[in-house]
Computed example of a mutant assay.
Amino acid sequence: MTRTIRIGLQLQPQHQPDYGVIRDTVLRAEDAGADIVFNWDHFYPLTGDPDGAHFECWTMLGAWAEQTERVEIGALVTGGGYRNPDLLADMARTVDHISGGRLILGIGSGWFEKDYDEYGYEFGTKGSRLDLLAEYLPRITDRLHTLNPQPTRHIPILIGGGGRRKTLPLVAKYGNIWHTFGQLDTHIEKWGIVEQRCVEIGRHAPDIERSVPWPGRDRAADYVAAGISLFTTGIGGPDYDLTPLIEAIGWRDENSPPPLSGLA
């Protein structure tokens, strides 16, 4: 199964107190040809001043749903430990409708302790947070099937993480997109685990899109050859320099096959 190469932008909503700059950056990314614009689900900056300017994820996605026309949008990724799963499904369904069917529901187990401590959530352990994610994913999917009105489409679920014992089985069972970090050989080894899990549950593994951070022009072809098709560049405030995104989009356009013509 050959997938179209896609380029995403993770716009990190930190260190920029003027939301208008974030809004304009989203528009610039869409105009530049990005396929997806992500934010992240944190409450504080992850770099620089730990108490610097920062905005919330899901209210922002609702605004992006209204202001954009073509790009898909989503969180890379939602912190599962501090989002009620049934309410999250309802939020996702609503943003799906606002956007006309362009939402990706990205979710992970969460890892940044300050998010939990400062907002009164139990941080627990890495294992307990993954167990909670395993409990929440079926609740999310069940709730999506009971909402009225229904989502406009099957909302793709992106699962972030690479734990062999707990995360990868969740990718195999629930994921439409798998986002992970690390070296290519590690990704390939972990993908083999996902494939085996898919065999065990009767799922077609190539239905899962594979996503990694943009590795740069020199290495991107190796990732595509390994079956990876979604690359995301990350930029933070306050300036939001789109140069890495423009580079990745240029590479995509140079290496994507031309559209078929003359077909009805």
Rank of each mutant, 00 (worst) to 15 (best):
P257N: 07
Q12V: 13
R153F: 00
W64D: 01
W178Q: 12
R164E: 15
R3L: 09
V77D: 00
E189K: 14
N148W: 05
R93A: 15
L130R: 14
L242I: 06
L132D: 12
I157E: 01
T167C: 02
G8E: 06
G237F: 07
R210D: 08
G202D: 08
F123Q: 06
G124L: 13
E195Q: 15
F38R: 03
G106Y: 08
M91T: 14
R165S: 14
T141A: 12
Q67K: 09
D24T: 05
R143C: 05
R23T: 08
Y44I: 01
R23F: 09
R3A: 12
L9I: 04
E195Y: 00
H97M: 11
M60I: 04
Q12H: 09
A264N: 11
P138T: 11
V71M: 15
T25S: 12
L76P: 04
M60F: 15
V71D: 00
L184W: 02
R28F: 00
F231C: 02
G110Q: 03
E209I: 07
T186L: 11
R219F: 09
S99K: 03
D51H: 09
G182W: 05
Y119K: 10
G100A: 10
V26S: 02
H204A: 06
P238H: 07
T167I: 07
F55H: 15
F55T: 14
P238S: 09
L230E: 02
D222K: 09
G250M: 01
T125V: 03
N255V: 03
Y136G: 02
R6V: 00
I246M: 11
G8I: 03
E72S: 15
H42L: 11
L230R: 10
R143N: 05
V194F: 05
I140V: 14
G234T: 13
S211N: 15
Q16P: 02
C198Y: 05
R203T: 10
G81N: 13
S256M: 04
L168D: 07
L147W: 00
V26M: 11
E200W: 05
R210T: 12
S128C: 08
